[in-house]
């Protein structure tokens, strides 16, 4: 089933039909999410209006981790099955993930100043998220550092797998160690400690950012496939 769409050509046909749909959905949900976030949700009893930063910060943080998981999964497929589409997806994901990580760090910093009283501290959560950004940047550098794409793809997938160790560290840093960053408000095992009126904009924004991610990902995958076709054509011309 999966391997039917693992053919880049068929994959491209599929994505061409989905892409405009998710793009518009992302835009509509973004407008809706921001409207609910700014006007239809209450300020926090303690933080006041700064709580609204959460509606951008938390989804960005979730997707900075999720996109890395996608890259890591692709790395496994790439190393074991040597499938081209896995290389293409991880190449397409890295800069998007890096952008979400930067957005997480920036919005977190803007929230930290009025809430904690500091822009930045070297606690485990903040530091491990910064390391995630460095890993993303490392991946992007490796992706672009060899003329031979198969070589850079192979090395990048090894780095991607090494970086997986950082994911549980980011996720559970707030539980394993004392951190300034608060523990998760939403978890599988207990009722969320966010009031339901604040959950609405948070979830709309999460879906919006998900659609945005898919939309950008599909564009980048298409570009990557075309790029590879050009490479093959050039190579044939030289022969």
């Amino acid at each position: 089933m999966i391997f039917k769409f693992a053919n880049p050509l068929k994959f491209q046909k599929l994505t061409d039909s989905i892409q405009p749909f998710v793009s518009y959905l992302a835009l509509i949900l973004l407008i809706l999410g921001l409207f609910f976030g700014f006007f239809m949700s209450p300020p926090d009893y303690l933080q006041g209006e700064t709580v609204r930063i959460m509606y951008v910060h938390v989804p960005c943080a979730w997707f900075s981790l999720m996109i890395y998981s996608v890259i890591a999964l692709c790395a496994v497929f790439a190393i074991v099955f040597k499938h081209t589409l896995a290389y293409i997806i991880s190449r397409a994901c890295a800069p998007i993930g890096a952008c979400f990580t930067i957005a997480t760090l920036l919005t977190g910093s803007i929230w930290g100043k009025p809430t904690w009283g500091t822009w930045w501290v070297w606690d485990a959560r903040l530091t491990s998220e910064l390391i995630l950004l460095f890993i993303y940047i490392g991946l992007m550098i490796i992706h672009n550092s060899y003329d031979d794409k198969s070589k850079s793809d192979r090395y990048a997938s090894i780095l991607a797998l090494i970086g997986v160790v950082n994911l549980p560290i980011i996720k559970w840093s707030v539980d394993w160690w004392n951190t300034l960053h608060q523990p998760a408000s939403i978890s599988k095992f207990s009722s969320p400690s966010i009031d339901s009126s604040m959950m609405v904009p948070l979830f709309i924004m999460t879906f919006s950012i998900f659609c945005f991610f898919i939309s950008i990902l599909l564009i980048r995958i298409k570009g990557e496939i075309i790029q590879r076709k050009i490479d093959v054509l050039r190579l044939n011309q030289l022969k």
């Binding site: 809430t115 904690w116 500091t118 207990s190 966010i194």
Partner: peptide, 29 residues
């Protein structure tokens, strides 16, 4: 030398900000 406020994981509107409800939530977790 420095004092930083630590925020907890509870987010709620000001209306239900009575001590009891906060304590209830803390006990839940």
């Amino acid at each position: 030398k420095y004092v930083l406020a630590k925020h907890d994981e509870n987010y709620m509107p000001p209306e239900i900000n009575d001590i009891e409800s906060i304590k209830d939530r803390r006990n839940d977790i």
